[in-house]
């Protein structure tokens, strides 16, 4: 009798009245992850750090929404995080990204309550690494970038893999268009493959020495990076969210990207 009922338990595929080709038992395992697409990047300057991320959220070929922020102020006051000095960007599985953001935000707020001073970016960066590593065997499926100003007032930027490995960098691109944006940043921010003209031939050629870029230039780089990524990556588009951390706080700007 039982076999009569178990014969046609619904599967994820369309149900047919005839049997599927494979005769073995088919199991549908629950997959706790998904990829919500999108891209983020961060660039640190002499006295500022810029974050940017597109605002498209996707599932497969569907656009979930055209406005889902990937940049979050961390450790500010109240629901709108006023007076925050640290920004976290997360791209990958958005639900994990949100959970991670809330955990780190709570930690940074508690730090201030308990010690009476704001958490430094370096301390926050290490804490974020520990949070990610604490879920080493069920990771937060996100690429995080964290930044602000360090204790000398210089731009600070830290990038992470999903299980907490991290380093301080000048710039980093993450997410679905990272393979498009990162080489562009390497070339334009760290002057990779740029040489001093006439300095020699072959190995004698001198690498052009990277120096912190002015804010105006960096903002233009960010916009170019995202308009180009929007052209070539279907998961990137709709809107560009930018946050700039300076000694005066965090400026947030939204500008449109192509919606196709």
């Amino acid at each position: 009798m039982a076999s009569v009922f178990s014969a046609s338990i619904p599967q994820e595929a369309p149900g047919y009245s005839f049997n599927h080709l494979s005769s073995g038992t088919r199991e549908h395992a629950f997959n706790p992850y998904t990829d919500n697409g999108g891209s983020t990047l961060g660039i640190s300057g002499a006295d500022f750090t810029i974050f940017a991320g597109d605002t498209r959220s996707t599932s497969g070929y569907n656009i979930n929404t055209r406005y889902a922020p990937k940049l979050f102020k961390i450790g500010g006051e109240g629901p709108s995080n006023e007076n925050a000095r640290i920004v976290l960007s997360v791209v990958g599985f958005a639900a994990d990204g949100n959970a991670l953001k809330e955990r780190l935000d709570t930690v940074v707020k508690m730090y201030k309550y308990q010690h009476g001073k704001p958490m430094t970016v370096a301390a926050c960066a290490q804490r974020l690494s520990h949070i990610l590593y604490s879920k080493r065997f069920f990771p937060y499926y996100v690429h995080a970038i964290l930044g602000g100003l360090d204790e000398d007032g210089k731009g600070a930027l830290y990038s992470y893999d999903p299980v907490g490995s991290y380093e301080r960098e000048q710039c980093r691109a993450a997410g679905s268009a990272s393979s498009l944006i990162m080489p562009f940043l390497d070339n334009q921010v760290n002057f990779k493959n740029q040489y001093v003209p006439g300095s020699g031939v072959g190995h004698a050629l001198e690498q052009r020495v990277p120096e912190p870029l002015p804010r105006k230039d960096v903002e233009q780089l960010v916009k170019d990076a995202f308009t180009s990524a929007t052209e070539r990556q279907i998961e990137v588009g709709d809107g560009l969210q930018m946050m700039t951390i300076t000694k005066d706080g965090i400026e947030e700007v939204y500008s449109p990207l192509k919606k196709d």
């Binding site: 998904t34 055209r66 599985f93 639900a95």
Partner: peptide
């Protein structure tokens, strides 16, 4: 999965298409 988002119009399942 706990994925959340908001938009002026939303549709689940087949409706999303």
């Amino acid at each position: 999965l706990g994925t959340t988002f908001s938009a002026p119009t939303l549709a689940t399942g087949f409706g999303a298409h």
